[in-house]
Computed example of a mutant assay.
Amino acid sequence: MNLRYAAARPATPSPPLAAMPYVAEANRRIAELTGARFGRSYLDLVADGRFEMDSTAAAIGFAALRAQAPGSALPLAETMQEAFYRAGDSLSDPATYLRIAEQHELDADRVISDLADPRTRAVALRDFGRAAEVDRDGGASHWPAPTALRTVSRPT
Rank of each mutant, 00 (worst) to 15 (best):
E102N: 14
V111C: 11
A11T: 11
G71I: 00
D114W: 04
P16S: 05
F38Y: 13
Y97G: 01
L65F: 10
R9H: 14
R40V: 09
V111K: 07
T120Q: 09
A58E: 13
S72G: 10
A24H: 06
R99V: 12
F128C: 03
E102C: 08
P75K: 09
E105Y: 03
I112W: 07
M80A: 10
Q103W: 11
E82M: 12
V123G: 00
P75V: 12
I100Y: 04
A24C: 08
A116I: 02
H104M: 08
P75R: 06
I30R: 08
D44F: 00
V46I: 14
S55N: 13
P94H: 10
A47W: 00
A18H: 05
S90P: 01
T79A: 15
V46Y: 02
D93R: 08
A8Q: 08
A73G: 11
R40P: 01
S113R: 15
N27M: 13
A87V: 00
R119C: 05
V46A: 10
A64H: 03
R40T: 11
A77R: 03
Y22I: 01
D109T: 11
M53V: 08
Y42T: 05
S55Y: 08
A26P: 00
I100P: 04
L74E: 15
N27W: 01
Y42Q: 02
M20A: 04
I30V: 15
E52Y: 00
Y22E: 15
R29G: 03
R28W: 00
R119G: 12
R29F: 09
D117Q: 10
R121M: 03
D54N: 14
